[in-house]
């Protein structure tokens, strides 16, 4: 029942052998060794598994891997150089950190569409994400800071 499923992951071509109906999350973590997307609920209820598929946030826990054939998938590992990572470190935005990779993925999509989001717009974009540690205030600040860094970088 396994096929080769070719897609682009974090800028590189991959073609894992997988059951096309398996969750993208399992293939990313176990076959491709990219553990940034995390299992939280398996039901599109927490956002821990969020990845970008063609630049749009998608739940990897419910997305069948067969549906990303030929597409571009980005996980938090693919955002290593993004201003968001710097901003999250600067703001020390996180406690246990389990929620962060999904949140950063959604934030990246937000900032691509809206370079100057308000606090309310950031909160709305992160609405699909839960954080049990109450790190929200810092996360909101970190996303705003990343937006500012990107704006200043673009201006410079």
């Amino acid at each position: 029942m396994t096929d080769r499923i070719a897609f682009t992951l974090n800028g590189k071509p991959v073609a894992p052998r997988a059951d096309p109906t398996a969750p993208l999350l399992d293939v990313l973590r176990n076959t491709l060794g990219q553990t940034g997307a995390r299992y939280g609920c398996g039901a599109e209820l927490c956002g821990a598994c969020m990845v970008l598929v063609d630049d749009v946030p998608a739940y990897a826990c419910s997305r069948e891997v067969g549906t990303v054939a030929g597409r571009v998938v980005t996980t938090v590992e693919g955002l290593a150089g993004h201003a968001l990572i710097r901003a999250f470190l600067d703001e020390q935005a996180g406690q246990c950190g389990y929620c962060l990779s999904g949140i950063i993925v959604s934030a990246a999509a937000l900032l691509a569409a809206n370079p100057s989001p308000t606090r309310a717009e950031i909160a709305a974009a992160l609405e699909p994400h839960l954080c049990r540690c109450g790190a929200h205030p810092r996360i909101l600040r970190a996303v705003a800071k990343a937006a500012q860094m990107l704006r200043e970088g673009a201006a410079a």
Binding site: R29, N30, G33, Q34, T35, G36, R38, Y39, T75, V76, E77, A80, I85, F88, L89, Q92, G94, G97, Y98, L100, S101, I104
Partner: peptide, 20 residues
Amino acid sequence: VPRLDLPAKLAGGGYVHDMA
């Protein structure tokens, strides 16, 4: 001072869940 564990977690790893 910055947390020692955060950079690895922001790079996609760092949890028992990720062990292989």
